[in-house]
């Protein structure tokens, strides 16, 4: 049986991006871990209902599965959110709004992608107006697979993200900052002239100081 564990061609881009972060993992100090421990207990979620997966966010947040017991509650605006949940396939039009919402969030911020559509295109693989791999446009911290993932799976994904934050590991927003050119080039490739306005990432023009 043909089984490949190595990436091929463009699939390796992701690993190249994450390589630079790998070395930082070792040096998470005491303060990082303490801050991470505090952060992990409170995640405000901006649930962007892009695809069918959005329907599973409601039982997660309400009485049946009650995500609030893990400190996970909905945020009314991107400004106050820590986690952006992309629930399913992303049309190009939506991608533009999602990028803008993501850039308005205050750091540290995380992205959770639900469903196979956000991982590899899923059943929309050959659609003319959806993107296939979300990770080419926004830095995803946690994938939750399934079509669509049930609330239990979402809770597990959130718990895994919380563990990751608790260890104080650098996360996606750093990757976004360091490889902004690559992300912006990818976004420009699919959005063309319709790029979102650039004042939401003006630190890019300020040479990364802002």
């Amino acid at each position: 049986m043909y089984h490949k564990s190595e990436c091929e061609g463009f699939q390796c881009e992701q690993r190249m991006l994450e390589e630079s972060l790998g070395q930082e993992n070792a040096q998470t100090g005491l303060v990082d871990r303490l801050v991470g421990w505090l952060r992990q207990r409170s995640l405000f979620v901006l649930a962007y209902g892009t695809g069918c997966g959005a329907i599973e966010m409601r039982p997660l947040m309400t009485s049946r599965f009650d995500a609030e017991r893990f400190g996970i509650i909905g945020a009314p605006t991107p400004r106050q959110a820590d986690v952006l949940v992309i629930s399913g396939y992303l049309a190009l039009k939506t991608l533009k709004r999602v990028i803008r919402s993501y850039e308005q969030m205050q750091e540290p911020k995380y992205v959770i992608a639900l469903g196979s559509c956000a991982i590899n295109g899923g059943m929309y693989w050959d659609s003319y107006n959806t993107i296939k791999q979300l990770d080419h446009y926004l830095p995803v911290d946690m994938y939750i697979n399934g079509c669509m993932p049930r609330p239990e799976a979402l809770i597990e994904g959130f718990a895994a993200l919380q563990k990751k934050i608790g260890r104080g590991e650098p996360s996606g927003f750093k990757r976004y900052r360091e490889n902004i050119d690559w992300y912006k080039a990818n976004q420009r490739r699919v959005l063309g002239e319709n790029m979102p306005p650039d004042y939401t990432y003006d630190w890019y023009h300020a040479g990364g100081v802002a």
């Binding site: 801050v35 505090l38 952060r39 207990r41 409170s42 405000f44 009485s63 009650d66 609030e68 017991r69 893990f70 400190g71 820590d82 205050q106 750091e107 540290p108």
Partner: peptide, 20 residues
């Protein structure tokens, strides 16, 4: 439902104070 812990507001507040 069960609801968050008694300390939840402290965690929320600390998280916001530690954000950029």
């Amino acid at each position: 439902r069960w609801g968050p812990s008694l300390w939840q507001n402290f965690f929320d507040n600390m998280k916001f104070l530690l954000k950029t």
